[in-house]
Design a protein around this nucleic acid. Structure first.
Length: 775
DNA sequence: GGTGTGTAGGTTTTT
DNA sequence: CCTACACACC
């Protein structure tokens, strides 16, 4: 029990009190993961079987890492048996083994958001509705929140509040769409993300024996990030915990940032009402960040009204103040960040992986990527499209899906004419219409196309028959061959490989390589030892839960030394020595949508709180006064959040030019030296490749030059510094005037040690530094 | 039925 | 700016 000594008092109590309901309110950086890890280890140490432990985490990655840490304490074989993962993946697993009870095949398909929206779009059109009024994404959100609140289509249509809302927003048909959508999913043997929770609830509600079984099984339940659970998740947990009430939830209301996904902060606020004899432990000591960071974050979150009282403090060093940076364009902002990273790496011996650049929206990554590339700083983007959502990958996966679950209508529609085989839109429209009108699965129609009175030409019928026969031939082999052999056969027989190979463009090559990458990983999967002697790794097992993987779950992303770029949402639970929060601008952060309502604004503020508290040593906040949006330059104002942090924790010394006319924004310390318009640009940048993971093609091919916005970077040129000698006086755009102390290195590694009057000693690589010789 | 071109519309955040 | 879809042509 050595591990108990590594805990402070409240942490230790949260670990040792393993009986009955426990709520742990864990401030940012207070060792929440450590508590969860040790609590599980402690349970096992005290004799609990790992099979009886259910631990729900927010990402698969978090589950994996926690398992690893537990394994180090109690042994890997024990840790392996714990039921641990996201709500979605754990309950998908349970649903597969109980699927028949609710009328689903065990091989049910999981529709990702794209599949759902395509289906919705089809239904909207079919109903003769305007898809500009009934926007698929909006309809999808509405249905999603209905499901997360456990409203069936019938309940939805009977709910007066909802129907009134829909009527007022001129969308009275939403309930009807939901009803049809739900039917189609069922017919296709498919569940969307929300169904994985919804159907779990149905299963547990309608099958007391099943409920009983899992209540007994999951004798100990732990839920991480409890503040971000929704109603559907809450009911599942409540049902499963009802018998033993050995439930431990861990969370921080100040970090609740997923209400758009149905997360309900009340779940954590009301926990005590559900379990009156709850023991509550507060973790308030922050071990992660410096005093300045903790205090700055506290001063911000104070502005929120609705929260549980907590005093987060730290005994860490005071550290640097949060540094404010101002740029004139998004590109310049990127360059400032890149240069700052470059400098910190030099002066503090930091690794690339010590840095994270966090932003509000994925679209902001581009300027950051460009600047990283220009300074040759390796980086890794998380978020955006995951590998498995790429078109070519989804196409091939659709074949796999169809082979595994022939009722999967979306898969059929996606690939029946890809690669093109003469089954065109008109024919498919007729077939789909016929199938929907008669409530028959698409596969049933096409596999018996001769027997149904669908008006299509005989040539097309023959093509369809060939297609069906091809799929059937795959179905025969799929259980005999391993996933890789089956996958390889399908990829080549269908003509996908050939089709992609024949495209010799850069993008086409990338797509081909992505397919090869998928096949490689299937090979790896197929070569893993199987539990059962002589069994093969099946295609179905490879593909079924792929939609639940995010790109954080992909292999080979973590162990290399790269700067991390991600949205703030994706950064939840992570920590980095150096954090840059970029795009601190009104209408971006807080987002345009959120500035209307108070609760939304409070959520944005919590999001900012999350961003700041990711930082261990230093936190940089940057904004730009203009930004490209859809190719147009738009003006932007500094975020109101910047003024909500107590100024005594902020270093705005580089903000001289910033106060010029941003009325809403004036820092007392605005001072010396720094002119944003003279930020050096990386003229000598080299062509870069290989900065992204080898698994992936860069998403964009072109590196945009900084001069594209016409300002900041274009007209500053450094002097020729090849003859620079110690003793010479120079001027640097950012650091001001200084004297060269020493020249070191040769060629592109030539470096000058310069004592700047204001900025102190710096080492600058001459190949990047724009220096003007002044004496 | 296949292929190419024009244009409308899209950015919160994610399992 | 980029993508997805509608329409016109072959």
């Amino acid at each position: 029990m050595e591990y108990l000594k590594e805990l402070n008092e409240s942490q230790r109590k949260a670990v040792e009190n393993t009986d009955g309901p426990v709520m742990v309110l864990a401030g940012a950086g207070s060792g929440k993961t450590r508590v969860l890890t040790y609590r599980i280890a402690h349970l096992i140490y005290k004799g609990a079987s790992p099979f009886n432990i259910l631990a729900l985490t927010f990402t698969n990655k978090a589950a994996r890492e926690m398992k690893e840490r537990i394994g180090k304490i109690v042994g890997e074989s024990q840790a392996k048996s714990i039921w641990m993962g996201t709500f979605h993946s754990v309950f998908a697993r349970i649903l597969r083994s109980e699927a028949e009870k609710i009328g689903y095949p065990a091989n049910f398909t999981i529709y990702d958001s794209e599949d759902s929206k395509r289906l919705l779009k089809e239904i909207i059109k079919e109903q003769g509705l305007d898809d500009k009024v009934y926007k698929p994404s909006l309809v999808s959100n509405r249905i999603s929140s209905a499901k997360n609140n456990l409203l069936t289509p019938a309940a939805y249509q009977q709910n007066l509040i909802i129907t009134k809302e829909d009527a007022q927003s001129k969308k009275p048909q939403l309930g009807k769409i939901y009803e049809i959508y739900d039917k189609r999913l069922f017919k296709a043997g498919a569940m969307d993300f929300d169904d994985l929770l919804f159907k779990t609830n149905i299963l547990l509600r309608d099958h007391p024996d099943v409920l009983n079984k899992y209540q007994d099984k999951f004798r100990h339940i732990l839920v991480d990030e409890y503040q971000d659970t929704n109603f559907s998740q809450y009911i599942i947990i409540r049902a499963l915990a009802a018998k033993f009430e050995n439930i431990c939830v861990v969370g921080d209301d100040a970090q609740s940032i997923y209400s758009f996904r149905g997360a309900n902060i009340q779940n954590i606020l009301n926990f005590k009402n559900d379990y009156p004899d709850t023991q509550t432990f507060k973790l308030e000591q922050n071990y992660r960040s410096t005093q300045n960071i903790v205090n700055a974050a506290n001063s911000l979150i104070e502005k929120n009204q609705e929260q549980l009282k907590k005093d987060v403090w730290t005994s860490n060093e005071e550290g640097n103040k949060l540094r404010l940076m101002r740029a004139m364009s998004d590109n310049e902002e990127g360059m400032q960040v890149a240069h700052t990273i470059f400098d910190i790496k030099n002066t503090e011996q930091a690794m690339n992986s010590d840095f994270a650049i966090l932003y509000r929206t994925n679209a902001q990554s581009r300027a950051m990527e460009d600047s990283m590339r220009k300074l040759n700083i390796p980086y890794q983007i998380y978020g955006g499209l995951s590998f498995y959502q790429r078109k070519e990958i989804k196409d091939l996966l659709a074949y796999f899906r169809l082979v595994v679950n022939p009722k999967d209508d979306e898969a059929i529609k996606r690939i029946i004419n890809y690669p093109t085989r003469g089954i065109g839109k008109t024919s498919m429209d007729r077939i789909v219409l016929f199938a929907n009108e008669n409530d028959i699965a698409l596969w049933d129609v096409i596999s018996k196309i001769q027997t149904y009175p669908v008006q299509i030409g005989s040539a097309v019928k023959n093509k369809i028959i060939q297609f069906v026969e091809m799929i059937q031939s795959f179905q025969v082999i799929v259980d005999k061959k391993n996933a890789y052999d089956a996958g390889q056969l399908i990829a080549s027989t269908t003509g996908i490989l050939k089709d992609l190979y024949s495209d010799k463009s850069v993008e086409g090559l990338g797509r081909y390589e992505n397919i090869q990458e998928l096949l490689n990983s299937m090979k790896e999967f197929s070569e893993e030892p199987q539990e059962e002697e002589g069994a093969v790794a099946k295609l179905a097992d490879y593909i079924l839960d792929i939609p639940l993987l995010t790109d954080q779950d992909e292999k080979g992303k973590e162990d290399s030394d790269k700067v991390t770029l991600m949205t703030i949402h994706a950064s939840k639970g992570l920590e980095f020595p150096y954090v840059f929060v970029v795009g601190m601008e009104e209408e971006l952060f807080p987002s345009l949508h959120s500035s209307q309502s108070k609760t939304d604004l409070e959520e944005e503020r919590r999001l900012f709180y999350v961003a700041i508290t990711r930082a261990e040593k230093r936190c940089h906040l940057s904004f730009s006064t203009s930004r490209y949006k859809w190719g147009n330059l738009i003006h932007s104002e500094p975020s109101r959040f910047l003024t909500e942090i107590d100024p005594k924790f902020i270093d705005a010394s580089g903000m001289a030019a910033a106060t010029q006319k941003s009325g809403a924004f004036a820092f007392p310390e605005a001072g010396s030296g720094w002119k944003s318009s003279s930020t050096p640009s990386a003229g000598a940048s080299q062509p870069t490749s290989g900065t992204t993971s080898p698994n992936f093609k860069p998403q964009r091919k072109l590196v945009k030059m900084p001069s594209s916005n016409g300002t900041a970077n274009s007209n500053i040129k450094g002097d020729d510094t090849s003859g620079l000698k110690p003793g010479m006086k120079v001027e640097h755009g950012r650091f001001g005037k200084g004297v060269v102390a020493e020249i070191e290195g040769v060629g592109e590694n030539k470096k000058a040690h310069i004592n700047f009057d204001q900025a102190g000693k710096k080492q600058l690589l001459l190949r990047f530094a724009k220096l003007n010789i002044i004496g």
